[in-house]
């Protein structure tokens, strides 16, 4: 399941559809599980009154679905770093594809690591989350 150093070449890309046609129900599920009940994600009437076209997803829901592509790629418990910016909003109906591109493959204090450039895009190919991850790999 974990990545082997020999499998990894700079520029190799992994990608996965992590949300298809985002439902308001999934946004509600994330609110309930995460405890983030901000009205902008949960109350369409109030979100509209505040000037938004509808409710929209929590940034952390986007980061959460993106993490699934990463753990499916690098294995469980292998991430050492994961971060980034929420670059565009995610709306009900969106389909998200999370991508990881291999950067450096390196060794630090005897631990083999891979650096990944992470980008999650919507169905219009607009980036909604852009960041990075580092994971332990097998030698």
């Amino acid at each position: 399941m974990a990545l082997q150093r020999s499998d990894l070449k700079e520029g190799v890309q992994f990608e996965q559809v992590v949300v298809e046609n985002l439902s308001r129900i999934q946004i509600v599920m994330y609110s309930g599980a995460s405890g983030d009940y901000n009205f902008l994600h949960n109350d369409e009437v109030a979100a509209t009154a505040a000037g938004y076209p509808s409710v929209f997803a929590h940034g952390m829901l986007t980061m959460g679905v993106t993490s699934r592509m990463l753990t499916d790629t690098v294995g469980d418990g292998r991430l050492t770093k994961f971060g980034g910016r929420f670059t565009s909003q995610v709306w009900p109906g969106d389909t998200l594809t999370a991508k990881a591109t291999v950067g450096a493959v390196r060794e630090e204090d005897g631990v083999h690591l891979v650096d990944l450039v992470v980008s999650t895009v919507n169905q219009k190919d607009v980036e909604v989350f852009g960041g990075y991850a580092t994971a332990r790999i097998d030698p």
């Binding site: 399941m1 599980a33 469980d76």
Partner: peptide, 22 residues
């Protein structure tokens, strides 16, 4: 939480399976 992010990996809910993982 795993359900809400659409991640059905059994390491998040199945103790028997999780015991076989790293």
């Amino acid at each position: 939480f795993a359900r809400s992010i659409g991640d059905s990996n059994p390491i998040y809910y199945d103790a028997e399976y999780a015991a076989t993982t790293e």
